[in-house]
């Protein structure tokens, strides 16, 4: 199932119907993803923000999957490592920086950890940090689409391979299969859950093999290949949108960085392993591929990178200048009205 798109290979470049413009957009999202996450780590080292996490290694999965998302129709229920997906469905770098800086203008008003976006406008659900809790929410959202007869809409829900060990993952998969719901389960299998390697997380390394047991299709795709991811997710989303029920997609990737700025991955994995896996880094690989195939000129690639950096810088400055929430903001939005527990 996994298609390998090695840049050096002379094999035909299968673009799965994507236009040059879309291919470049995928690269732009991947570059922005990486730049903003680098920015998060920098700001953390500078002592400007207490926490950052990153999806380095997930850029291909996320930019590819985002291309299969139909803005204004589909619903995204992401998890905390999905910056690239969020950008890909329309979140701006400024919104990302507001979240990193925990400013009042952030979607959660500075309440949540970074990368826990919610945007009704874009169809991004609010999520917590508690793993797998978003899975039943996505399934419930898909049920709402189905019960209202809203054909042509689907839900995309994502999670790491570690989250597939949670009971709620199983419950969500099962319910979606019973009701043939318009939902795509996208597992970003980066082989690590903080310090826990996949072989301590599951006996069978292929999450997608569980799909049969639920009575839905399961597909494995090379997550370092954004175009392959796009193709698989797009097919699954199309099936969901047209009443064909759910799909489990497993994108194999790798987590290049530590889990978060609070984690030191040298305590549980070797530098050699990480270095070896870095050789398949999807960001430079995809850039090279587009240049080789003439989708982008070398100069075009350079100016794209400059533009991304400039936008990230502008977003950083603008967000940093914004105010924090006020102490009084602690008390709002507990309920619709006021909320004294004693009346």
């Amino acid at each position: 199932m996994a298609s390998k798109s090695k840049p050096a290979a002379k094999a035909r470049f299968e673009r799965h119907g994507l236009t040059d413009e879309q291919l470049v957009e995928i690269l732009r999202i991947m570059l922005m993803h990486r730049t903003l996450e680098g920015r998060g780590f920098q700001l953390n080292r500078q002592g400007k923000i207490p926490f950052a996490s990153a999806g380095e290694g997930h850029e291909g999965v996320q930019a590819g999957a985002a291309m299969a998302f139909q803005r204004g129709r589909d619903i995204l229920v992401p998890y905390y490592r999905d910056l690239g997906l969020d950008l890909g469905v329309g979140l701006t770098p400024y919104e990302v920086l507001l979240s990193l800086f925990a400013r009042k203008a952030d979607h959660s008003g500075g309440r949540q950890f970074p990368h826990h976006y919610a945007s009704k406008r874009l169809g991004i659900h609010t999520i917590s940090s508690v793993l797998a809790t978003q899975i039943p929410h996505a399934v419930g959202a898909a049920y709402a689409l189905k019960v209202r007869g809203e054909r042509g809409r689907a839900v995309l829900v994502t999670f790491g391979e570690g989250s597939t060990s949670e009971g709620e993952w199983h419950e969500g998969m099962n319910f979606a299969a019973v009701h043939k719901l318009p939902v795509v389960f996208l597992c970003e299998n980066n082989e690590w859950a903080i310090s826990t390697p996949a072989d301590k997380q599951m006996a069978n390394p292929n999450v997608a093999d569980r799909a049969v047991g639920y009575g839905m299709p399961g597909v494995i795709v090379n997550g370092f290949d954004p175009v392959a991811v796009y193709a698989v997710v797009n097919e699954a989303m199309e099936r969901a949108r047209s009443g064909g029920g759910p799909t489990l997609v497993e994108a194999k990737c790798y987590r290049f960085l530590a889990h978060t700025t609070d984690d030191d991955d040298r305590t549980y994995r070797s530098r050699e392993e990480v270095e070896r896996r870095r050789r398949d880094d999807p960001v430079p690989n995809f850039e090279r591929l587009l240049v080789e195939r003439g989708v982008l000129t070398p100069e075009g690639a350079e100016s794209l990178k400059k533009a991304v950096l400039a936008e990230a810088n502008a977003a950083t400055d603008r967000a940093e200048a914004m105010p924090y929430p006020a102490p009084a903001d602690l008390y709002t939005h507990v309920y619709a009205g006021d909320h004294a527990p004693w009346r």
Partner: peptide, 17 residues
């Protein structure tokens, strides 16, 4: 599956049911 009975209901509520 009680966790998901409530979890799915939450997703429904978030999407207007």
């Amino acid at each position: 599956a009680e966790a998901s009975i409530v979890g799915i209901a939450i997703g429904m509520a978030m999407e207007g049911l």
